[in-house]
């Protein structure tokens, strides 16, 4: 080190003057600075599973909501002559997709047997000859609609309830928590069943019953987080500056609640989808002839031994939907809450 010093010239030992000084740029920051959202998005993008889930969901959304473009047949049109036909995709000759089916140990061409002519059904038909593919698309749409509606109630009711309870505190909070406690002591499904029985099974009844039960978790989490944030310095600062209580709640509190809200939303959605499928499955949900993934699975299950595709396809779509939402939810939780991983 001492040798090192000798090579330098005497000129080096003059103090740095004004112009050079400026170049030193004493607060240079090499780490790229990211906003919270950018940072979360970066973490989410790094999560391959979550990105695949996101893409899958986008595809399912497009397929389901534009099903009138993609559906190959009218989902509700029955055709008893062409009932229980296995999947057939022209040009593909793999068992399971070529319109053949095993019957008493032999593989037979079900389409020829039914004199289907040029008709083909890529996922086969059900016991009334309805096109399974179109019905699955329709059922997916029902599931996604339910998902959106449940999210809406989560946000509109759960978040407001939680913030109100936590922000006002005191007696109001105690009362609101008692109500939640009572609701929590009745299994959700029982509440739904009672409501559906009163309202007559159907889409409206399902939506209402899911709406009434789905917001509770959100309300609890939002309240807990509100209580935690309420006493933090930035809220106190806003108070000291004389901002109105509700303005603080929306301007300062809500953005800080966004992680909790988004994460919980991602877990409300699969729950809602599950309940719709469940209710339809046991026979008090979406009623015939409308299709729901639950009713499709129920129909398919009856013939599972002989026509397994009738249950497999709707079951796979329902499971993929749930898996995708759950993985995306997990990914978002990790991305929005850096503590949880890394």
């Amino acid at each position: 080190m001492a040798d090192n010093a000798k090579q330098t010239s005497a000129d080096d030992f003059t103090p740095i003057a004004g112009a050079d000084r400026a170049k030193l740029d004493d607060e240079k920051i090499a780490t790229p600075s990211l906003t919270f959202l950018q940072d979360s998005w970066r973490r989410l993008r790094k999560n391959k599973a979550a990105m695949i889930a996101l893409v899958l969901l986008i595809i399912l959304f497009i397929l389901a909501f534009f099903s009138f473009i993609f559906e190959t047949h009218n989902p509700n049109a029955t055709n008893p002559n062409l009932a229980n036909l296995p999947p057939k995709i022209p040009g593909i000759d793999i068992n399971g997709f070529n319109g053949t089916i095993e019957q008493s140990g032999e593989r037979i061409n079900a389409y020829a047997q039914a004199h289907a002519g040029n008709h083909f059904y890529i996922l086969g038909t059900d016991y009334l000859g309805r096109d399974l593919f179109s019905r699955i698309l329709y059922g997916t749409r029902i599931s996604l609609e339910i998902a959106l509606i449940a999210s809406f109630f989560d946000l509109a009711f759960g978040v407001v309830y939680g913030i109100t309870s936590g922000w006002i505190g005191g007696r109001v909070d105690t009362l609101m928590q008692r109500i939640i406690e009572i609701m929590l002591s009745i299994p959700n499904l029982v509440v739904m069943v009672l409501l559906i029985l009163v309202l007559k099974p159907g889409m409206t009844a399902i939506i209402l019953s899911i709406a009434i039960t789905s917001w509770i978790n959100m309300a609890r989490l939002v309240r807990a987080q509100t209580l935690e944030l309420k006493n933090q310095e930035f809220i106190l600062a806003a108070r000291t500056l004389g901002e109105s209580s509700w303005k603080i709640a929306f301007k300062h509190l809500l953005p800080n609640l966004s992680s909790v809200i988004i994460i919980n939303l991602m877990f409300t959605i699969p729950t809602a989808i599950f309940f719709e499928a469940f209710l339809s499955y046991i026979g008090i949900g979406i009623s015939a002839p409308q299709a729901s993934l639950g009713t499709l699975i129920n129909d398919g299950q009856k013939n599972f031994q002989f026509l397994p595709y009738q249950m497999w396809y709707p079951a796979i779509v329902l499971s993929v939907l749930m898996i995708a939402f759950n993985i995306l939810g997990d990914g978002l939780r990790d991305a929005l809450d850096p503590k949880s991983r890394e």
Partner: peptide, 26 residues
């Protein structure tokens, strides 16, 4: 472990029950 829990959370009980009944039972 995560895959196991995601699968079991996502696959509805009625689907799982039918599959168990068919494959392990029948």
């Amino acid at each position: 472990a995560t895959i196991i829990s995601i699968l079991f959370i996502s696959i509805p009980s009625f689907v799982l029950a039918v599959l168990l009944q068919y494959y392990l039972g029948l």
